[in-house]
Simulated assay, not measured.
Amino acid sequence: MKHKLLVLFLLLLSISMLWGAGNSESVDASYPTKPITMIVPYGAGGTTDISGRQLAVQLEKHLGKSITVINQGGASGSIGARTVLDAKSDGYTVLFTAESLGTQRVMGLSEMSYDDFTPIMVAVNDPKVIVVGKDSAYETLQDLVDDIKNRPGKVKMSYTGPGGSGHVQAMIYGKFGMEMALTAYPGGADCILAVLGDQVDFTNSNYSTVTGYLESGDLKLLGISALDRLEAHPDVPTLGEILPGSERYLSNPFTPLSLLVDKDVPPEVVTILRDAAKKAVQEPAWKEFVVKNSLDKLYEKYPDESSMRKFYKDWESLVSWMLYDSGVAKFSPAKFGIEKSQY
């Protein structure tokens, strides 16, 4: 009798384990079953926020669930990124971030990096542009560059904090003998408001955040921090034209925006999110958004996980060593095994 009961118990246990495994797979396959939260680790109104919200709208169409975008700025994106890692690794909390994950370790802001996440999509690069207020005495990019050179440390520039894309812009200026007075603000929109309020002389904004101000005439576009002029503004020169020798720095995408999840999110969920993201960027509304804001379609250049991870590795190497060699990084990239690229 005892033997029969033991056999029956083991049989029921086996059935239960098999059902549990099958049920787990069905849960993953049915993802999502509830709303998703997208953390944008910067203030509202900046390039990451604008692009993230647009992508969220398109993703909802293919995931069948609502996506709530939450801005959680501070510490160059590290606070919001930590929120995603601290959440349950089930794919219901995702991160839409700019490039700061590639610099947080060397800047001493956090111990996080791209390696702590699984990439869903390297989405777009928002070109950096140089803008001043409508009443600024600067009429051309050359005017601004000359004044910075003539008055070291006097011309004021707003940026989003240590290690951010604006900070990298300032380092490029520095390599060509230009020193500015830097003032940090929580996000890209705040940097623009500082220009509008005459708190600073100029800023290196992302193009998508200034289009409305350019159309209204509240800001003047002086230059493009890239090698190629924008189709929307063919008469505006690039920084490369004004600073000979800067080409090797300006070829880098300064503000790559990415959709990421915690590295422990199940592979089945990652696959569903990637499929939805690929469909989202084919939506007419997204394509119109990309064209209107002159965004670089990085998702076409880095279509799979291996190419995305290589992009992050190369970007991290270039910018981290630039920060360190300029004396602004707290730690050497070598401390984290980041090999030095040639730039």
Results as ranks from 00 to 15, higher is better:
1 M>G: 04
8 L>K: 05
14 S>Q: 05
21 A>H: 13
23 N>M: 11
24 S>F: 11
25 E>I: 08
27 V>I: 14
28 D>N: 05
29 A>D: 10
55 L>P: 06
56 A>P: 04
57 V>N: 12
67 I>F: 05
71 N>M: 06
75 A>W: 04
75 A>G: 00
80 G>R: 06
95 L>H: 09
99 E>F: 03
104 Q>F: 02
104 Q>V: 02
105 R>H: 04
107 M>N: 11
118 T>K: 13
124 V>G: 06
124 V>T: 14
128 K>I: 10
136 S>P: 13
140 T>H: 12
142 Q>P: 02
143 D>A: 11
147 D>R: 11
149 K>L: 07
159 Y>D: 10
161 G>F: 09
161 G>E: 09
165 S>G: 12
173 Y>R: 00
173 Y>V: 00
180 M>K: 00
182 L>I: 01
182 L>T: 02
184 A>V: 00
184 A>R: 03
193 L>S: 12
196 L>E: 09
198 D>A: 10
198 D>H: 15
201 D>Q: 05
206 N>A: 14
213 Y>L: 07
217 G>H: 07
218 D>P: 00
219 L>S: 07
226 A>F: 12
228 D>V: 05
229 R>I: 01
231 E>K: 15
234 P>C: 01
235 D>H: 04
243 L>F: 04
245 G>E: 04
251 S>L: 11
257 L>T: 01
266 P>I: 04
269 V>R: 13
273 L>V: 01
284 P>M: 12
287 K>E: 15
299 Y>S: 01
311 F>K: 10
316 E>T: 13
318 L>R: 14
321 W>S: 03
325 D>F: 03
330 K>L: 08
335 K>Y: 02
340 K>D: 03
